[in-house]
């Protein structure tokens, strides 16, 4: 769990991370690499999960709201707002915490225990800044794209159900996903995802950076990274929803 001294060390590390890079050219080279590794490489899993979750969510709402008083198009509307409000930002971020978080923590943790981080420091490089900043910025930049993609794929999954089954007429579904659309929900989702991206990259880097010992400890660091960034995301979700939606 996050103890007070852990939090203190995290803040100190972030202070060292958010400084001017020693060499902008190197930073410029690192950034796109990290964006590919953290963002682009996650596209596949996000597409698959969003499509299937969109499909199943639509099926469940249809099956559980069969009533003459509820118009059928409302199922499309429910799917759209669930995707927008929670799935594409929060649930997808929890997913990324697992995939990207463990990747970051084990990469940096390995560099720590094999003294590569010491080697950077000895050369006079600010290792926190060099290693962590491109990851944090890179993931934050990728998040809006991933969120948009996730919403789109979720709706696509719903569309698949409308096309392939007779559970909901196509016209109702199309009408539903456009009905009473609140553009601010999209903004809300994007803003949340930026915070979550920051949490995933920075918390996971933190656990990797302070790994100590051997290969087993890297595994432990990466578990800690996933668990603690997930918890932080859930807490942040409550705080942001309170601030942004009420």
């Amino acid at each position: 769990m996050l103890g007070l001294d852990t939090l203190g060390r995290y803040v100190v590390l972030m202070k060292r991370t958010f400084t001017k890079p020693d060499n902008w050219r190197m930073f410029g080279r690192q950034l796109p690499r990290e964006m590919v590794k953290l963002g682009v490489d996650s596209i596949g899993i996000i597409i698959i999960i969003s499509i299937f979750m969109g499909a199943i969510m639509l099926m469940q709402t249809i099956l559980n709201t069969e009533s003459p008083f509820i118009p059928r198009y409302s199922n499309g509307l429910i799917l759209r707002d669930t995707m927008l409000l929670e799935f594409a930002s929060s649930i997808m971020s929890l997913l990324l915490a697992g995939k990207v978080g463990s990747n970051i923590a084990s990469e940096i943790g390995t560099m720590r225990i094999t003294e590569q981080i010491d080697a950077l420091e000895i050369m006079g490089v600010n290792s926190a800044n060099y290693l962590i900043l491109p990851k944090v910025i890179g993931l934050i930049l990728c998040m809006p794209v991933l969120v948009t993609l996730s919403v789109f794929c979720g709706l696509l999954g719903g569309l698949g159900i409308a096309v392939l089954t007779d559970m909901i007429p196509m016209a109702d579904f199309i009408y539903g996903i456009q009905y009473a659309f609140i553009p601010y929900y999209f903004t809300y989702s994007i803003i949340k995802s930026l915070f979550f991206g920051f949490i995933i990259a920075s918390v996971s880097s933190f656990y990797g950076y302070y790994a100590y010992g051997g290969a087993l400890d890297v595994g432990r660091a990466s578990t800690n990274a996933v668990v603690n960034s997930s918890i932080a995301i859930l807490l942040m979700n409550i705080i942001l929803t309170r601030i942004l939606l009420t």
């Binding site: 060499n23 050219r25 190197m26 010491d118 050369m123 006079g124």
Partner: peptide, 26 residues
């Protein structure tokens, strides 16, 4: 310059990139 017990080469970089690293940095 420092030589670490386990060499501590950057394993995401090739040999030449490793040697060039301090040059590119500074």
């Amino acid at each position: 310059g420092m030589l670490f017990q386990g060499a501590a080469l950057f394993d995401s970089m090739t040999v030449i990139e490793n040697v060039m690293f301090p040059l590119e940095m500074f």
